[in-house]
Design a protein around this nucleic acid. Structure first.
Lengths: 143, 143
DNA sequence: TCTTGCACTCAAGTGGACTTGAGCGTGCAG
DNA sequence: CTGCACGCTCAAGTCCACTTGAGTGCAAGA
């Protein structure tokens, strides 16, 4: 608040992002520093907001760094459609992943609560579901 | 259906998994073949089910291969708690990721529908949210 | 018999996202 | 003025999940 300009180590501490990562993002052009004093990077509010955005999108592999870059780097106007495309595609990808995760969650919860000692071998319910998947797959062989 | 034993290329085709990946999983012990004829891998129904399970868990990085292995390889009985732990932890991880994904999805949807030419720079709503995150982070500096 | 196709092994390479290390500069407290 | 914290660059290394390539074997069909 007092300052307006932050050193790389301050940014690192606030956001829990390693210094090496910040330098790496700078190198990529994903998060350039606001400027330099000597050759020391300084970050301002705009950079902090940008980093917050990057984190929200990229955190734990939600969106690849390349896509994140495509999404948040102001496109050169004529490139705008590209940005929109990535945007739409990313949303679809994310929706798909949420579905996948939900399925995996159900599966794991079943494994956790299943009274069978080894659900993978013994649980009928699980087996039925997996067999269905196998059937679906095998269908492809008869073509 | 007719057969009960499948070649690596058949399995590859049914499940859309590259042959190299199947060999890799075999090498890891994650998905051993049912046996070999000569030194050619053969897969049976149990292996297909196992592969279906692996896919559900591992698909697009949902769960790491190591964790997938921990989850589905029958633990040596005394190791059972370990399996349970991984199970619980995985479920929590997955829940967290679903939340993160939802947040990212909202953010992207806002960016898509926002009338501003460049939401990242111009959208007040977005800025407010990001500023909040920045404030939260900066709080850590005053300690 | 010869070729074609599928399978195998083992070692090395790939890509994404960083991390680590060596070697160097700079500013300020003691 | 010396030492330490902090910062810098550039090259190389790491981890994961595979993929690719070189070299080989076997079995069936023309």
């Amino acid at each position: 608040m007092t300052d307006e300009r932050y050193s790389i180590s301050q940014v690192s501490r606030c956001f829990g992002v390693p210094i090496s990562t910040l330098r790496y993002y700078d190198e990529l052009g994903l998060l350039p520093s606001a400027g330099r004093k000597g050759n020391v990077r300084l970050y301002g509010p705009a950079e902090l907001r940008r980093l917050a955005l990057i984190q929200r999108l990229h955190h734990r592999g939600l969106v690849s760094l390349a896509d994140t870059a495509a999404l948040i780097c102001e496109a050169p106007a004529d490139d705008r459609p590209t940005g929109r495309d990535v945007l739409g595609a990313s949303i679809e990808t994310i929706k798909g992943r949420i579905e996948d995760l939900r399925a995996a969650q159900h599966l794991l919860e079943h494994m956790l609560t299943c009274p069978r000692a080894d659900p993978v071998r013994d649980c009928t319910e699980l087996r039925v579901e997996l067999d269905q998947a196998v059937e679906d797959g095998l269908g492809a062989l008869d073509v």
